[in-house]
Amino acid sequence: MIYLLCVLLLLIGLYGVLVKKNLIKIIIGLSIMEYALFLFFAVIGYREGGTAPIITKGFEKAVFVDPLPQALVLTAIVIGLAVTALLVSLAVRIYEKHGTFDIRKIRRLKG
C-alpha cells in the first residue's frame, strides 16, 4: 500500500513535468519525482516493528530497519539538491535570455 503511495507521488511529479508549461513548475515536478523515489527507497529498508539501527545496551537483538537505504537516500538527496539548484539557475538565465518561462516558447533548437 505504502509503495502504491510512492508510485502515486511519482506520477504526480511526472504529471507536473509533462503537462506544466512553466519552467519552475517543471523543476518542481522533477523534484517531486525524485522525492517519491527517495521515499520508496527508504520504505524498502523498513522492517516490521524495527527500530533505528543503533546498537545500544539492551537492544542487541532488536529488529533494526535496514540502514543502507537511509544512507543512500541521504546521498541521493544531496545529488537531488545539486540537480535542482543547477536547474533553477538555468531557468533564471533562460528567463534573462528568452524573456519567458514558457517551455513552449523556448524552442529555437529543433529539426
Partner: peptide, 25 residues
C-alpha cells in the same frame, strides 16, 4: 550561457534527471 546553450542544457538536464530517476528506481 547564450540563449540556445541554456535551452539545450535545460532540456538535457530535465531528460537526464528523468533518466536518473529511472535508474534510481
Amino acid at each position: 550561457t547564450e540563449a540556445e546553450e541554456l535551452e539545450a542544457a535545460f532540456k538535457y538536464q530535465v531528460l537526464g534527471t528523468v533518466a536518473s530517476c529511472f535508474i534510481l528506481f
